[in-house]
Design a protein around this nucleic acid. Structure first.
Length: 460
RNA sequence: GUGGCUGUAGCUCAGCUGGUUAGAGCAUCAGAUUGUGGUUCUGAGGGUCGUGGGUUCGAGUCCCAUUAGCCACCCCA
């Protein structure tokens, strides 16, 4: 009856897309493992209380809430009605909803750490790749269901962790063949800036405005700062700060002059210098200090990261930073941490745009056996058994058809080889193997089939 | 949550200031071709023009409502 549809902002992923996405995800996961991180998965849904109030007022509105069951049960109906009245007034009511789809991976992780801090070995290093849901209105590159890909270390204040994350970024993007710039800054520098302006209370506002710089330009940032209650004198200081340029060394020198005399300024500079020293010792070249980097989220307290792809017009494809207190909201204080995130959808788009996916990524079945009759298929069946035992994926065309059809099927499934066993081959115990990309074909003994295919296999 | 744009064949889209039977390319199917695909040629099928209402002698075309998608803002990945 009704037309088949999927919910707004969600997507089906076809075979080719899944394979390409898996290629990205596998690369990232293997690098995480290489650096000693362990996987964690948490449920699709959390208790609503776990999520509410953890983001922002806006964030709360964007949480997908799950309706309780049994609301229409006669013995509940009065309560349900009362609860609904509450909801209409913008409140939440446990009677109506007490569970919600997770909104990000960080808060569920914090909940997990708070629940299990007695059992965990600290520093605890975990990575997590799972879908999250937001009731946002979808638009370009923005979905209601999307994957986040996070790694965090909690229970350690050592800056070595930050260096490791920079190395992880470099390692992953090098493997994916994406040219990137890894930008760093310290929130302590931004704190120092707000102190210098005598506007410590406006730190968040300053951060949010600066964060928009590369998107809206300096004039509009000024406008926003003005709107957020800063006077021209203060804005001047900020403009001076944003004007800092040169290479890493020159930038540090300039920022030192501007706010090296403040306590947090000094600390921030130390953090950045530590990272530069350590990472150059590890052979990492692409780290760039960017004082205009701010990051929207205001729980960051130390080093912050952002990764930008070169040669394409695209927002950041990764970001993260240090936070002081992950689990305090769940009653377990003093667990600091640092984490990063990969934007899988954007990485996918970048790789698609620059044609960076290896050709062999989209390959399922390697060999298609043509169906040329019953006796022929029976032979094909026993050969398939042998190939599969040797880890060569293969399938038999489902019915006897014209060559045309069978070839087209193979072509569409991106199958590399056609194996033909017809009456001639049956008599001579041979098999005709055709490489569908080059068009070359050979006749081989059936017993040599697996070996032949392995040799003809172009890559890997 | 606020604003803008768009809904015509499976897909991408034409369709003029309203006018007879709504088109093209690609895809599909059949044939040229009963052991050789990706090229070519011939033919065929496929549409209550998103849905509901209105204006009109007449609506794919104009108006209103509704719904879905896209894009932008807010915010964010």
């Amino acid at each position: 009856m009704s037309k088949a549809t999927i919910p707004q902002g969600t997507r089906d992923f076809s075979a080719e897309v899944v394979r390409k996405r898996n290629y990205i995800i596998q690369t990232i996961k293997s690098v995480f493992e290489l650096y000693g991180f362990e996987p964690l998965e948490t449920p699709a849904m959390e208790n609503l209380d776990t999520l509410l109030g953890k983001y922002s007022e806006e964030g709360d509105k964007l949480i997908f809430k799950i309706l309780n069951n049994g609301l229409g049960d006669p013995k509940n109906i009065e309560k349900s009605r009362a609860a609904f009245e509450n909801v209409l007034q913008g409140k939440n009511d446990r009677q109506l909803t007490e569970r919600a789809l997770k909104y990000d991976l960080t808060i569920p992780f914090a909940r997990y750490v708070a629940m299990n801090h007695g059992q965990l070995t600290f520093p605890f290093k975990r990575y997590q790749v799972q879908p999250v849901w937001r009731a946002d209105r979808p638009q370009k590159g923005r979905y209601r269901e999307f994957y986040q890909c996070d790694a965090d270390v909690v229970g350690s204040t050592s800056l070595v962790n930050e260096v490791e994350f920079a190395l992880i970024y470099a390692n992953v993007f090098q493997q994916l063949n994406i040219d990137v710039e890894i930008k760093i800054n310290s929130r302590k520098i931004l704190t120092a800036l707000s102190e210098l302006c005598h506007a410590k209370d406006k730190l968040t506002g300053i951060t949010v405005a600066i964060d928009k710089l590369d998107k809206i330009g300096i004039e509009k940032v000024e406008g926003e700062l003005l709107q957020r209650g800063l006077n021209p004198e203060q804005i001047n200081i900020i403009k001076k700060y944003l004007g800092i340029s040169g290479n890493n060394k020159e930038k540090i020198k300039q920022v030192e002059e501007l706010l090296g005399h403040t306590e947090s300024g000094k600390k921030g500079i130390e953090e950045l210098e530590f990272m530069l020293n350590y990472s150059s010792d590890s052979g990492l070249q692409s780290l760039t200090i960017d004082f205009t980097l701010a990051r929207g989220l205001n729980y960051y307290t130390g080093i912050i990261f952002e990764v930008k792809a070169q040669h394409v017009q695209m927002g950041s494809i990764g970001g993260g930073g240090r936070y002081d207190d992950l689990t305090g909201l769940f009653g377990v204080p003093d667990i600091p941490g640092v984490g990063i995130s990969f934007g899988i959808d954007r990485i996918y788009d970048v790789m698609e745009e620059l044609s960076l996916f290896p050709k062999e990524v989209h390959q399922g079945t390697q060999v298609l056996f043509f169906n040329l009759g019953d006796a022929e298929s029976t032979k094909a069946f026993s050969l398939m058994h042998e190939l599969r035992a040797k880890d060569i994926s293969c399938e038999l065309f489902h019915q006897q058809s014209k060559f045309d059809k069978q070839f087209k099927y193979a072509e569409r499934k991106n199958i590399s080889f056609a194996a033909l066993i017809g009456s001639r081959e049956l008599e001579t115990n041979t098999c005709t193997v055709k490489d569908l990309r080059s068009g070359k074909q050979v006749s081989v003994k059936q017993s040599d089939l697996a070996e032949t295919i392995r040799k003809m296999k172009p890559e890997g």
